[in-house]
Design a protein around this nucleic acid. Structure first.
Length: 939
RNA sequence: GCCCGAUUAGCUCAGCGGUAGAGCGCCUGCCUUACAAGCAGGAUGUCGCUGGUUCGAAACCGGCAUCGGGCACCA
């Protein structure tokens, strides 16, 4: 760093330079055999669906702050980056692109489609990695992973096999959430309920055998989905409902279809809702499916997988499901079966991705038996593992693991991990049906061996040649993401060094929106795989830090579909990555659910980030000041100051530094990152810049006693002490700030220390405070000095003195210790208040002097006087004293009231009572002194 | 329906049992050779409402209100 630094910090070049230097030096590429306690984080892999928004920037800032801190603590830190293939999201996106070009994906074919997907991945993945680099992420890029990498695919296959062998994966025909838009099954979690204004249609279903004795000849059922009536196979009533008791066991004749279907009694029916009769469509509704199971009702599917009606729908075949709804209603009305239509608000399941209503549809899929896996996780949680931060998210996680439903893991998509199951199609006439036997294997060769063993002989006996076909479907993306903490470390290779060294990981940092999708899936799969070996701790992370979601300027959740994502790059370009990181982390202190970033979309500006940029600039200038005042020396060449030579201000800032260093380490270590950032901001700006640097200026630039004379040995020694203190404080401050502002701190640290380019602050040890540096009593004394200086400055402002105009300052106090502090700091007071002279008197001596016409203020037991003959504005003076009196009076009232309460003295802790008494005495003294000043002035 | 949050200065948020805080914004004065992206000084709040616990409540407990989120859903 050159001596003549520019006045403002320009982050762009600096940040790029250090990112390159770190990476080229392999600074964040740890050796599993390296020293230090292991600390590891796998980053939540962003989807390769385009680019990152501010939410990712936020998460990155959090994770990087944590891992950089741990590195400074001397740990052997691995932070592993990567991206996720996001099966359904990417496929949807690509299909949309193809559709725009008028190419159906079937025409393109699976292989060509996958080729396109891979090139998309290269592009999007590249963009994302570029963005992460630009933030200064201290991850190990040499260990970057993608969920479809061969190694990770091997993990997926292995996991599938093991789960299948344990009976935890099964295949079968069930009602699943079918997304007609993507043409695939989706899991329960990918379904979002939306409240919609719909209708409740009441249909008359005639009894097949005419009216019961004295009863009606029909039942009335109500439905929100008329088109499904074509698949009705029953009508249900509550078993205790007297209105229909006589009808149970009889049948009705389904209008439009003509099928006779039974009336069954089922507890599920709420007799108070509607007519108390429910049409039962087991193939198109989960509740009806359950009723159907209980009563042995047949399943009739009337809809095809693209959401149109199928042949079973008779005349309605070929119609889209929503067209069919209109048509069925019209037909029912025409047939006199429509009783009435009511407006009805109800929840409709929508597909997260497809943005269309999902269709409960009967289909053959693969499932993971979730309960045994969840049980293991609940048990671990009972033992406190993992530990959630903030704690309350633990309940959310636990609730989901309780009453969990099986997980549908097959997707009718192309982009993803192919299901490692081979159907022995020769057993079922060359086609795959629900009944086709299959083998699960690591590859085609193993599949053939297994099939040969199981079916070879039988086949040949039947004169058939064994014929295998791999399941065309892929696995739910979250199945591979669920293995991420160990698949990335080399599992299932038992000899993987990274796995041995860094599994389980230390902390997972993620948003509350994917606790179920991801966190729970990882713990469940890890519990089944035991990646560290049987009997070893399998829980994939010790801690789970859950953060809030970044909202846009209108307080809405950012999402791709809403198009309201804030791109971090323009903000980084404008303010610097460090400023953005600092701003984001500083906002998170409360760990609330929302992170609001104030952002002016039109101007591309943010006052929050701007404030952080200003802070960066402040640090830049503080270091600039140091470089101009250290006489060409470095912290190392200067060495530690001689304790004998330390002045009050020196001992104060060194004590504060030691305290802040401890506090900050404690905060970083417990994920209180926002508090760490706020604490450092205040310490650096207020205590280091506003007070320490201002106080050191005089000593750093000593004036000779007379013009032209050399500096005294005393002045030179003091100058050295001042340099030592400044250098030490600044160097350590940069270390403390490094996790939050890595580039700036690295740059300034090199400037300050002159360290070679190949040495990094990023790999430096956390500062160990000088023993005995902490001194609480001294900090209190110094706080009084600061207050005294403030009072003087305020008085000068009230008097309307020009800042450059010197004026005499007189302190009067009866407290010997305070008088001593003020006397010791006379030179400092002179500098900071432009004092012409500083005099400290005790009240007796002061009383003996002729009453000066002076501006006066009273703070505690300290009177501050500015004798300003001829200049004094008496009104301003009186006003100031009145203000002091009012303040003291208010305090006397409050404290007096408390002390007057006998219960307070008897029940409150003695130290609180004592403090209260002392404060009261002080306030009374203050009020008395101020009144006396008024009298002295003839007021 | 069940479960979580949130409600503090104009704005964004800390504080979680001992006399209300920060940043931004606002007002006054300063280009004081580190920094005008700055310096010094200043103003600003019945801490959502309401009961209770306590010597003492912004903080702890109960109720209410408003906003937000999650889970489950009755056709």
């Amino acid at each position: 760093m050159a001596a003549a630094l520019p006045k403002t910090y320009d982050p762009a070049a600096t940040e790029a330079r250090w990112q390159r230097a770190w990476e080229e030096a392999g600074a964040f590429h740890p050796d599993p055999a390296g020293p230090g306690e292991p600390f590891s984080v796998v980053i939540p892999p962003p989807n390769v669906t385009g680019s990152l928004h501010m939410g990712h920037g936020f998460e990155t800032a959090l994770i990087d702050t944590i891992v950089r801190f741990q590195r400074l603590q001397g740990k052997n830190v691995l932070c592993l980056p990567g991206t996720d293939h996001a099966s359904i999201a990417v496929q949807t996106l690509l299909e949309k692109q193809l559709k725009a070009q008028g190419i159906p994906k079937e025409e393109l074919g699976r292989d060509a489609f996958l080729e396109k997907a891979w090139s998309w991945k290269a592009e999007s993945g590249g963009t994302i990695v570029g963005q992460l680099r630009r933030l200064g992420y201290s991850v190990d890029w040499q260990r970057e992973r993608f969920t479809l990498d061969p190694g990770l695919n091997q993990a997926v296959v292995e996991a599938f096999l093991r789960l299948h062998d344990q009976g935890l994966i099964y295949r079968g025909e069930y009602l699943v959430n079918w997304c007609p838009a993507s043409g695939s099954a989706v899991s329960d979690l990918e379904v979002e309920m939306k409240e919609l204004e719909g209708h409740l249609w009441h249909f008359r279903y005639p009894l097949t055998d005419g009216p019961a004795t004295g009863g009606s000849d029909h039942l009335v059922v109500a439905t929100t989905r008329p088109e499904t009536m074509l698949g009705d196979t029953g009508v249900a009533v509550h078993p205790d409902d007297p209105r229909y008791a006589a009808l149970v066991g009889r049948t009705i004749t389904l209008p439009l279809v003509g099928r006779a279907i039974p009336i069954v009694a089922d507890e599920h029916v709420d007799p108070a809702f509607g007519t108390g009769c429910v049409k039962v469509t087991p193939a198109h509704d989960p509740n009806d499916f359950a009723i159907g199971q209980r009563h042995g009702l047949p399943l009739i599917t009337v809809m095809a997988k693209d959401g149109t009606m199928n042949a079973a729908a008779g005349n309605f075949a070929g119609l889209d499901r929503f067209e069919a709804r209109q048509a069925v209603v019209a037909a029912m009305e025409a047939g006199g079966f429509l009783v009435k239509v009511e407006p009805h608000r109800h929840s409709v399941p929508f597909s997260d991705r497809g943005k269309v209503p999902v269709e409960p549809l009967l289909s053959t899929q693969w499932f993971v038996r979730a309960e045994p896996l969840a049980a293991r996780c609940r048990e671990a949680l009972d033992g406190g593992s993992p530990r959630f931060v903030p704690e309350r998210w633990e309940k959310v996680y636990r609730d989901w693991l309780t009453d969990i439903r099986d997980w549908c893991i097959s997707r009718q998509l192309w982009w993803g991990h192919r299901i490692p199951a081979w159907f022995v199609v020769s057993e079922t006439g060359g086609v795959i049906t629900e009944a086709t036997p299959y083998v699960v294997a690591r590859d085609a060769g193993e599949a053939h061996e297994k099939a040969e063993t199981a079916y070879g002989e039988g086949s040949r006996a039947a004169g058939r040649e064994l014929q295998l076909e791999q399941d065309p479907d892929v696995l739910d993306t979250w199945f591979s993401s669920g293995l991420w903490p160990f698949s990335t470390l080399g599992w299932p290779d038992p000899a993987a060094a990274d796995l041995a060294r860094w599994y389980p990981t230390s902390v997972l940092v993620t948003g509350f929106d994917i606790i179920f999708f991801w966190v729970a899936r990882m713990t469940m799969l890890a519990g089944a795989m035991e990646p560290a070996g049987a009997g070893q701790n399998w829980m994939p992370f010790a801690d789970v830090m859950i953060h809030g979601l970044v909202r846009d300027e209108n307080n809405r959740k950012m999402s791709k579909s809403a198009g309201n994502g804030i791109d971090p790059l323009p903000l980084i370009e404008r303010y610097g990555a460090d400023a953005l990181r600092f701003a984001l982390v500083r906002e998170v202190a409360g760990a609330g659910q929302d992170i609001r970033l104030d952002y002016d979309r039109d101007r591309g500006s943010s006052s929050t980030v701007e404030a952080a940029r200003n802070f960066a600039n402040k640090l830049w200038n503080a270091t600039r000041f140091a470089l101009m005042n250290l006489g060409g020396e470095t912290p190392a060449s200067l060495g530690a100051p001689d304790p004998e030579r330390l002045q009050l201000a020196d001992r104060w800032i060194l004590s504060r530094l030691a305290r802040v260093s401890d506090e900050t380490a404690q905060r970083y270590g417990s994920y209180a990152l926002g508090e760490a950032a706020k604490g450092l901001y205040e310490f650096a700006w207020n205590e280091v810049c506003d007070w320490t640097i201002e106080l050191l200026k005089r000593r750093l630039n000593p004036r000779p006693a007379a013009e032209g004379e050399p500096l005294s040995p005393e002045a030179l020694a003091d100058q050295r002490t001042a340099r030592q203190v400044l250098a030490q404080v600044l160097e350590q401050l940069l270390v403390l700030l490094h996790p939050l502002m890595p580039h700036l701190s690295e740059e300034l640290w090199h400037g300050l220390t002159g360290a070679p380019e190949s040495t990094f602050l990023a790999l430096n040890p956390w500062p160990v405070p000088e023993p005995g540096a902490l001194d609480a009593g001294l900090e209190d004394r110094f706080a009084e000095l600061i207050e005294a200086i403030r009072v003087v400055r305020n008085l000068r402002a009230v008097a309307g003195l020009k800042p450059s105009q010197p004026a005499p300052v007189l302190f009067v106090t009866g407290r010997a210790d305070l008088a001593a502090t003020l006397s010791e700091a006379t030179a400092d007071i002179t500098t900071l208040t432009r004092a012409e002279s500083v005099t400290v008197l005790d009240p007796a001596t002061a009383a003996a002097r002729p009453a000066a016409r002076a501006l006066a203020a009273v703070s505690g037991e300290l009177q501050v006087l500015l004798p300003l003959e001829g200049l004094v504005d008496l009104d301003a003076l009186r006003a100031r004293l009145e203000k002091d009196i009012a303040k003291a009076t208010k305090e006397i009232q409050g404290l007096g009231g408390r002390l007057a309460n006998p219960n307070f003295a008897s029940k409150a802790p003695p130290e609180v009572v004592a403090e209260c008494r002392a404060n009261l005495a002080e306030a009374e003294t203050q009020a008395a002194l101020a009144r006396q000043r008024l009298v002295d002035l003839g007021g």
